[in-house]
Computed example of a mutant assay.
Amino acid sequence: MAPIFTTLVGGTVGLITGMYSMGLRGRTVVKPHLSYAIFTAAGCYIGFKYYEFKQYEGQLIEKRREYLLEKRAQRQAEASS
């Protein structure tokens, strides 16, 4: 996933969360509030951090895979000798 996609999804979820919380309080939902901007910014930040985490996780998995392949090659070399 591209970082712009996860950021936009996070911002949308943040905006919907802000609107939902305003609806629970009994306030007008469509009237612009400062809290909408805060919720949207927080959602964008969380979405971007999710993207970074997935990239980091992929790097860790690849590093572990290479390590395991090296160990397998060593074991096979020892077994064949």
Score class of each variant (00 low, 15 high):
18 G>I: 03
18 G>W: 05
18 G>C: 07
18 G>A: 08
18 G>V: 07
19 M>A: 09
19 M>C: 05
19 M>Q: 13
19 M>H: 12
19 M>T: 07
19 M>K: 12
20 Y>P: 07
20 Y>N: 12
20 Y>S: 08
21 S>F: 10
21 S>T: 15
21 S>K: 15
21 S>G: 09
21 S>R: 15
22 M>D: 02
23 G>I: 06
23 G>A: 10
24 L>G: 06
24 L>E: 13
25 R>H: 12
25 R>E: 09
25 R>G: 04
26 G>S: 01
26 G>R: 05
26 G>L: 03
27 R>V: 09
27 R>N: 04
28 T>H: 04
28 T>C: 04
28 T>F: 08
29 V>D: 00
30 V>N: 06
30 V>D: 13
30 V>M: 15
31 K>C: 00
31 K>E: 01
31 K>V: 11
31 K>Y: 01
32 P>D: 00
32 P>Q: 03
32 P>L: 05
34 L>G: 03
34 L>M: 10
34 L>I: 05
35 S>Q: 07
36 Y>H: 11
36 Y>Q: 07
36 Y>F: 12
37 A>Q: 11
37 A>S: 03
38 I>F: 04
38 I>A: 09
38 I>K: 07
38 I>P: 03
38 I>W: 13
39 F>K: 06
40 T>V: 08
41 A>Q: 07
41 A>T: 01
42 A>M: 13
42 A>P: 06
42 A>G: 07
42 A>S: 08
43 G>T: 07
43 G>F: 08
44 C>A: 14
44 C>R: 10
45 Y>L: 11
46 I>Q: 06
46 I>T: 05
47 G>Q: 01
47 G>S: 06
47 G>A: 03
47 G>I: 02
47 G>L: 08
48 F>I: 08
48 F>A: 12
48 F>Y: 15
49 K>H: 15
49 K>M: 13
49 K>A: 03
49 K>T: 13
50 Y>T: 11
50 Y>N: 02
50 Y>G: 06
50 Y>M: 10
51 Y>R: 06
52 E>M: 14
52 E>K: 09
52 E>N: 04
52 E>L: 13
53 F>K: 09
53 F>R: 13
53 F>I: 14
54 K>T: 14
55 Q>I: 07
56 Y>M: 15
56 Y>A: 14
57 E>W: 10
57 E>M: 15
57 E>F: 15
58 G>W: 00
58 G>D: 12
59 Q>I: 12
59 Q>V: 11
59 Q>W: 09
60 L>V: 12
60 L>F: 12
60 L>R: 05
61 I>M: 14
62 E>T: 04
62 E>G: 00
62 E>I: 12
62 E>M: 14
63 K>N: 02
64 R>H: 03
64 R>M: 05
65 R>T: 04
65 R>H: 04
66 E>M: 11
66 E>P: 01
66 E>I: 00
66 E>K: 13
67 Y>M: 15
